[in-house]
């Protein structure tokens, strides 16, 4: 049984997109996790859903929107949510995490209303919620490729600044690093990556691809750079295995990708435990 990668264009689209996301999500995820903002991805994915639902609703009534790839409207909402979180954090200086449930519930509330207005669920929406191997279009591939270029330019050229800001904002301020706009661009990029990942992983599971590979690598890695490397290896492994399995079993890929991430996480915990047990045994 050979995998018909070269036979079907839809599989190529799905895999190329998946591999790009397997790179993007964990890279940004490392910064999110070490800043203890893991839930940000959840809040932004739910506001993205509102954008998708809005587009589906408008598509029924306005011709222009029915031809438009909903991913763009998702991005608009997601970036809007990112700006909202940034603003709310300034309002609630001492309760910064409050911004996340506020944006998240606003996102779900809006989604429910738009979905109701669009006369309920359909297969399109199902694909956005849980991901799909079939639904990735050529235009999605190019959009995500473009985002990949932006994110990599940002992370490579501002690596130092992102690193200090994640470790110690006060130190960053003393060494003259202007954290405000870097933090802002960062959260906007997270919003874009989330909106672009949802075709493959699905809105409900996007955040797991940002956090689970990092959660696994943070236990094993020595240093910050190694954390990136391992996170990407884990992320890509989960995406590729998950896509293959979802193709053969005809499951939504969101589920299989996330479950592979969970398995990798469990294996990393087990590995760490065995290794530290051995260390204790040697010391004794």
């Amino acid at each position: 049984m050979s995998f018909p990668f070269f036979q079907y264009e839809f599989l190529q689209n799905a895999f190329i997109t998946g591999i790009m996301i397997g790179l993007l999500a964990p890279v940004l995820g490392v910064f999110i996790v070490v800043r203890r903002q893991s839930l940000i991805a959840d809040a932004l994915s739910h506001i993205t859903l509102a954008g998708i639902a809005a587009n589906l609703m408008l598509g029924r009534n306005v011709g222009f929107f029915s031809g438009l790839n909903p991913i763009y409207m998702g991005m608009v909402f997601s970036v809007g949510g990112a700006v909202g979180i940034d603003q709310l954090r300034k309002v609630y200086k001492h309760y910064e995490e409050l911004a996340i449930p506020i944006i998240m519930s606003a996102g779900i509330g809006l989604s429910v209303i738009f979905i109701s207005l669009a006369n309920g669920f359909n297969t399109d929406l199902f694909n956005y919620l849980f991901g799909s191997v079939l639904a990735v279009k050529k235009s999605d591939v190019w959009t995500i490729f473009f985002i990949l270029l932006i994110v990599f330019a940002f992370v490579i050229f501002l690596y130092k600044e992102l690193f200090v800001l994640s470790f110690d904002e006060e130190q960053a301020a003393v060494s003259g690093i202007k954290g405000k706009w870097i933090n802002f661009f960062f959260i906007v990029l997270v919003a874009l990556v989330i909106a672009s990942s949802m075709k493959i992983v699905g809105i409900l599971l996007v955040s797991s691809l940002m956090t689970l590979p990092v959660a696994a690598s943070i236990r094993l890695a020595n240093g910050f750079k190694q954390t990136f490397l391992l996170s990407v290896v884990f992320g890509e492994t989960a995406v590729i295995l998950g896509l293959i399995l979802s193709y053969y079993l005809d499951f939504a890929p969101g589920g299989t990708i996330v479950m592979f991430s969970v398995i990798i996480l469990l294996l990393s915990l087990l590995w760490k435990k065995l290794r530290s047990n051995r260390k204790i045994a040697i010391n004794q």
Binding site: V34, F163, G223
Partner: peptide, 12 residues
């Protein structure tokens, strides 16, 4: 629990 080596911290 921040995953950074001594070298990386000092480089900051």
């Amino acid at each position: 629990a921040f995953p950074a080596t001594v070298y990386e911290v000092v480089s900051m």
